[in-house]
Nucleic acid binder design. Structure first.
Lengths: 189, 189
DNA sequence: GTCTATAGAGTGATAGAC
DNA sequence: GTCTATCACTCTATAGAC
């Protein structure tokens, strides 16, 4: 059997981009089919649960990327501050300095939140928790570490909103610079 | 002339809530009609431009509320720090301590952004500018004031996202407390 | 008759499910 | 591709206040 079947990772990446640009409601199967080059039949073959399953798979795919590239460095770095710097660099790269929006954050804001609530909260909760752990290992008191971590993750999300509103990547760059400062990472560390 | 006609402010408030809960794409005319109790005829009578005009009117309505309750105190208070405290209190009240989402922020994140880009950027831009002005009058250097203002507005937006994701108003309360601290407002001021 | 506000049948297009 | 449901929207008809 000849398989033209696209790599699932690649497929999910394309579908993610459609959701990111149009939102859950706005991402029609026609748009998804056009972007992926797949007919509706193929889409339902890969995702029997339809659009909702596509969105779940996309969130899980993004979550897995963050697990590998953002959360793991926070958890596993022997130097917690180096782990935080890796996290920030990966974040900057993922969001393309603010040109790209956080799909999970966007889902959190509209009605699709109810469908995906546990996946959404799991994502943000782990981000905050792992960052707080790294800060605690870096010498902060646990309560202070948690506050700083929550502030940093919220600052990133807010900067993505503002950067998109202003269509200005400078907003996001400045937010990351401030995050480095507030988290105690010297510039050029 | 007797007017049974519903108050426009009230109508826009109801329509705003539908957009807030369902997003631009998800807010169907059927939902809007159900929420307002108006038929399509009435809706198109008030908003000949259809859904897009409804959304524009809703954004303008929100913008006007912020102008009166958030930006004006920042601009007009003789004591800049008191103005900032008024702004934060109005913000807390408007977003119901994080239970309510920022419609304009949500619009900024998805494709509807392109339709409403200038209204969206006008809203956030004025928020940042007026806050920065107040900080400058409070004694901060202009560049530092602008950074602090951008950080505070982004922190509020990010906290709204996280509060909604976590379904926890504590996230938003803590963000406002940190904002008071970073903006130099003593607790209980 | 005119103006404002209402209701809702009916349009073609497109949605997601299968 | 086929299905039905629903989309945004148009249009006609209607009401009562001037």
């Amino acid at each position: 059997m000849r398989r033209i079947a696209p790599d699932r990772d690649q497929l999910l990446g394309i579908v993610a981009e459609v959701f990111r640009e149009h939102g859950y409601e706005g991402a029609s199967l026609a748009l998804i089919g056009e972007a992926t080059g797949l007919g509706k039949g193929s889409l339902y073959h890969f995702f029997p649960g339809g659009k909702e399953e596509m969105a779940r798979a996309v969130i899980a795919h993004i979550d897995a990327w963050f697990e590998d590239n953002v959360f793991a460095p926070l958890r596993d770095s022997t130097d917690p501050m180096a782990g935080i710097e890796t996290m920030l660099a990966a974040t900057d790269s993922y969001f393309r300095s603010g040109r790209r929006v956080c799909l999970i954050g966007a889902f959190a804001l509209d009605e699709s939140r109810d469908l995906f609530a546990s996946q959404i909260w799991n994502y943000f909760g782990r981000w905050v928790t792992h960052l707080a752990d790294a800060l605690a290992r870096g010498g902060h008191a646990p309560a202070e570490a948690l506050e700083l971590a929550e502030e940093a993750v919220a600052a990133i999300q807010g900067a993505l909103t503002l950067a998109r509103a202003a269509d200005d990547t400078g907003v996001f760059s400045r937010a990351l610079r401030r995050a480095r400062m507030r988290l105690g990472i010297a510039p050029g560390d």
